[in-house]
Deep mutational scan, measured.
Amino acid sequence: DLSALRVEEVQNVINAMQKILECPICLELIKEPVSTKCDHIFCKFCMLKLLNQKKGPSQCPLCKNDITKRSLQESTRFSQLVEELLKIICAFQLDTGLEYANSYNFAKKENNSPEHLKDEVSIIQSMGYRNRAKRLLQSEPENPSLQETSLSVQLSNLGTVRTLRTKQRIQPQRTSVYIELGSDSSEDTVNKATYCSVGDQELLQITPQGTRDEISLDSAKKAACEFSETDVTNTEHHQPSNNDLNTTEKRAAERHPEKYQGSSVSNLHVEPCGTNTHASSLQHENSSLLLTKDRMNVEKAEF
């Protein structure tokens, strides 16, 4: 173990290094160091905050020279020094078990990766560091076993998940096959086929009936047209017969005018059967003409 005197000496050296690497504005270890034209180094955030307070150039807090945003430059070497100082402080805390008085939040800088452990060898070769390295080497064999167990647990979990997924996939297939086998029997399929065939026959029977009705309507229309044509021909046949009657009536009127007047009046009210309204109107006109002729003949006879 380190003596108290040596611990104090190391602590004083760390404090001196820390004062050199402090920012003059925030009085902390410089984060993202930036250098000016006057070779003074500050935190990048502190300098941008200072420049944004005034429009135009501002003055350096140490030498009062003008500073602009374009004049600022990043210093990589200074950032490396800060990183190495942080590593020294971490090693000091691990070796002594004491917390550094002016320690900052170094938890963000710590890294437990194997590459980081290899890099620590180049920091300080001390008894405390050696003991700590031995402890780490002793704890390393235990870690692979834990990793193997965790991997086995994960693989077993994956296997159970896969088996569950396969079961879920197989179950719908089985149910679907069961439904297909038990849903419709052979008799049901035959009945469905016969039902479809009967429906098709009914459709075939319905369509000819409609065509037959249309044919019957067409035949009825044709018969009505033929009947009207026969009526017209009958009226045409009746007209010459009426003319013959008129000639006979004229002759009778010349011989017996008194008797014919009474008979002509009675004939006005008689309509021949089986004739249309057109034929009756023609008869009325003929009878009126005959009456006028008879009157003329009677007057001539009187004179």
Rank of each mutant, 00 (worst) to 15 (best):
R6D: 05
V7S: 11
V7K: 07
Q11K: 10
I14F: 13
M17T: 12
Q18D: 14
P24R: 00
I25Q: 13
C26D: 13
C26F: 15
K31D: 13
S35I: 06
T36C: 03
T36G: 03
D39R: 06
D39F: 09
F42P: 15
C43F: 15
M47S: 14
L48Q: 06
K49W: 07
L50H: 09
L51D: 03
N52Q: 03
Q53E: 04
K54V: 13
K55E: 06
K55V: 04
Q59C: 14
P61M: 04
D66C: 02
D66N: 06
T68N: 03
T68D: 06
K69A: 06
L72P: 10
Q73S: 12
R77V: 12
F78S: 04
F78L: 03
F78R: 13
Q80Y: 09
L86D: 13
L86H: 02
I88D: 15
A91C: 10
L94A: 06
D95F: 15
D95L: 15
L98S: 02
E99D: 10
E99Y: 15
S103G: 03
N105E: 13
F106E: 10
F106N: 07
A107K: 14
E115G: 03
K118G: 13
D119V: 15
E120G: 11
S126W: 15
R132I: 01
R132T: 15
A133L: 09
L136S: 11
Q138I: 06
S139H: 11
S139M: 04
E142H: 05
N143T: 05
P144L: 05
P144G: 06
P144H: 04
E148W: 11
Q154G: 13
L155G: 13
R162F: 10
T163K: 11
R165V: 14
T166Y: 00
I170Y: 00
Q171R: 14
R174S: 04
S176F: 00
D184N: 12
S185R: 05
S186H: 03
T189V: 07
V190I: 09
A193I: 00
D200E: 02
Q205V: 03
P208H: 04
E214C: 02
S216M: 02
L217Y: 01
K221R: 08
K222I: 02
V232T: 06
V232K: 13
E236V: 03
N242T: 00
D244T: 14
E249R: 14
K250N: 04
E254P: 06
H256P: 13
H256V: 09
P257A: 12
V265N: 09
S266N: 05
E271D: 03
P272N: 14
G274H: 02
S280Y: 14
H284R: 15
H284L: 01
H284G: 14
K293N: 02
K293G: 08
D294W: 01
D294E: 15
R295F: 14
